[in-house]
Design a binder for these strands. Structure first.
Lengths: 335, 335
DNA sequence: ACTAAATATGAAAACGGTTACATTTTAAAA
DNA sequence: TTTTAAAATGTAACCGTTTTCATATTTAGT
């Protein structure tokens, strides 16, 4: 494999000149520039970027911690990250953490071991192992999708509380009073935020919050189905179910169908995220759309700015949401 | 940031000894080993892995080219890759190519520029730009999911033709004679393989192949929906539709529902991949299950073996498939 | 106790670039 | 033409490891 010295020899110049020709062509005369370029071709030179990264101390790699790439919403976010990263000359190192703390730490360590310049978390969960904190006591990190309260790190998030409130108000406006909620995992701040929004709407409408209408989930189809089965066996069923994500809602709808409950005439169902499938299930799902790709783009832009020292204090970017009303929600049935 | 020299100074030994202590502890006396370990702690040493990779010439990175991470099937494959890579001490650099040739080349180039040791393609599409071929004329690459014919590179694939044949036979056994097919993108060898399997089954059952029952798609929900609309407007409708993946099938089912065609009583629908959603749509989708995670695991194992020179000539691993009969396929309606 | 072999350690080169600094060449100004 | 500044190029140090080879130390054998 040809290296920069081979090029220099071939062109009859020094390695410094070759390096300059490649990095700052304007600093070298047109004549030698041509010689060098010809030599590059002649010997088939490919710069060893590992050497460059080592020397420069900048890897231009970003680690992204994602709970699971199989989640359709995350897949969209990642897609946006890839795009922005490519534009800025960065590569994404994707880590599928499966919520596992060891895996998270393993990948987060790539920053302290100079394998990556920064870190994006798709799940709020700091601080990491103290061993990976750098000089100034902070990791070059941004949190996406979930707000983190301590204000130390940049955040790009959705106003989950407001969005959940908007959805709940939509259900209330259709006449629903007994509105169940299928939650996300306990460990996720999202769960709490969306629950808060739900409670806000209830309070504003003078509907007393009923803890027995809360069901556990974990953002998977199966969990939604399980909760749906439980709900359909209830003596005093809710007339609407607000699910903390679309997968959950789709799972629950299957349970309702099996129990011969019509959606939305017997029971309304609402989701959150607006994944592609939601428009294609039967009935199409009412949900909250989030600008997923934009999330990703913003997160890497923020991180790169942070790495370049362009950010003074941790900003908090709140992305807009949109209530998408489809056919899975309808007016409450008379009791 | 402490480097190996700081550790050496602190421990009162040479850098060579520190390196040995960390890499091959058995080659250093217990006494100095303890001294070094203490020094590592004392100065908070974290090896600069970029330097290690540069020096060793092994990056322990693998580039994975995926057409789109938003495809649920690919997401499962990637998940399996991550797992196997982590076990083998490799990291995955995920590239979302969106089928774009430039993006593919850009990421493939990471191998020739020493940023990654090898490459996995989730879509068969070689050779690349000649500029990135190495000495022996080959890229350290394995193809997953799609068989490639030239036999130069290891392949892990499914017998798509046999699987498509099995599904078509299932439909024929239910009495279907007019079976439409919604294809994948032209560019994908998968499309052709599955089409071949479909034709095989037709031939074996003495059903004449009817080109007008072939519809274009691209593996997305929307394309499936579009084809579904076209089919429902047909004067002489097929009694069954075999879709080349599940997303397509789910899209088509939505179109049929809108056209008041009952699945499966009016028209049967079959998919391919068995993504998680398929069990949860209405009706649950008959499909072909592929061991997606295992695909991913096998692909990286193969690639790592290839990198270690453990592979003589390119193997071709064919993974098993399974016909999953759910409720979207039923006996053919009398005409 | 003496020598040979085995083990432990250190000094320094190497990996492939970038870059500060020194030097030479070219262009511009006097 | 001479002087001076600017532009082009070269020399060599440097980034943080690993690794070869030489040297020092320990262990074993007689």
């Amino acid at each position: 494999m040809a290296n920069i010295r081979d090029v220099a020899d071939n062109a009859g110049v020094s390695v410094a000149t070759v390096s300059r020709t490649l990095q700052q062509p304007e600093r070298v005369s047109p004549k030698t520039r041509n010689k060098v370029m010809a030599a590059v071709q002649a010997v088939g030179y490919k710069p060893n970027l590992m050497a460059v990264k080592f020397r420069s101390g900048k890897t231009h790699n970003l680690v992204v911690l994602v709970p699971t790439v199989a989640n359709v919403f995350f897949a969209r976010v990642i897609s946006g990250m890839q795009e922005a990263a490519a534009e800025l000359g960065y590569s994404i190192l994707l880590a599928n953490t499966l919520g596992n703390n060891d895996i998270e730490n393993h990948y987060a360590k790539m920053v302290s071991t100079s394998q990556a310049d920064g870190l994006i978390q798709l799940r709020a969960h700091n601080p990491f192992d103290a061993s990976m904190i750098n000089d100034n006591g902070l990791l070059p990190m941004v949190n996406a999708c979930e707000v983190i309260e301590d204000g130390q790190y940049p955040v790009v998030s959705l106003d989950n509380r407001a969005a959940a409130k908007a959805m709940t108000e939509h259900l209330i406006s259709l006449g629903h009073k007994r509105i169940a909620m299928i939650k996300g995992p306990h460990s996720s701040p999202l769960t709490q935020e969306r629950l808060n929004g739900y409670k806000d709407a209830l309070r504003d409408a003078n509907i007393t919050f009923d803890e027995s209408l809360l069901f556990d989930g974990d953002f998977t189809l199966q969990a939604g189905y399980n909760a749906g089965v439980t709900i359909s066996e209830l003596a005093n069923k809710p007339s609407a179910v607000f699910c903390e994500n679309d997968e959950t809602a789709i799972g629950a709808m299957k349970a309702f169908k099996q129990a011969d409950l019509q959606v939305p005439s017997d029971i309304s169902v609402a989701g959150f995220d607006d994944i592609a499938f939601s428009a294609f299930v039967d009935p199409p799902l009412t949900t909250i759309a989030q600008p997923a790709e934009e999330f990703g783009r913003t997160a890497v832009t923020l991180l790169v700015d942070l790495l370049n020292g362009k950010i003074k204090k941790a900003p908090k970017v709140i992305m807009p949401f949109e209530l998408i009303v489809r056919e899975s929600t309808g007016v409450a049935a008379p009791r």
